[in-house]
């Protein structure tokens, strides 16, 4: 399993639009991907679960990836948190 920490670069945090994109991204991989904030973990197949974490700009989250395509998934997740969120 791969675990990475990310600081949320989008000032508004994970709102509907980035959340939609992240869920779509996660669904594109076979690996099980989940996200954790303040001890609460949700699977990245649920938009409601993700939004209910109320992730704000500047906060830190952990993302766990496990499965046959976890390396490719990690690359995509990295890009999402490090690049895409920055440009929002």
């Amino acid at each position: 399993m791969i675990t990475n920490n990310y600081t949320i670069l989008a000032p508004q945090g994970i709102h509907a639009r980035p959340a939609t994109m992240l869920i779509k991204l996660a669904k594109g991989f076979k690996s099980a991907i989940s996200i954790k904030k303040d001890g609460k973990t949700v699977k990245l197949n649920s938009m409601l679960g993700l939004l209910s974490l109320n992730i704000k700009g500047g906060e830190t989250v952990a993302v766990m990836i496990e499965g046959e395509d976890q390396v490719e998934a990690e690359r995509a997740v990295n890009q999402f948190f490090n690049d895409y969120l920055k440009d929002l």
Binding site: A16, R17, A19, T20, I23, K24, K43, N45, S46, M47, L48, G49
Partner: peptide
């Protein structure tokens, strides 16, 4: 994008 997030919510496994 608003409609996209609606579709995502409708699909939500939770």
């Amino acid at each position: 994008a608003i409609l996209d997030s609606q579709i995502e919510l409708l699909n939500d496994p939770e």
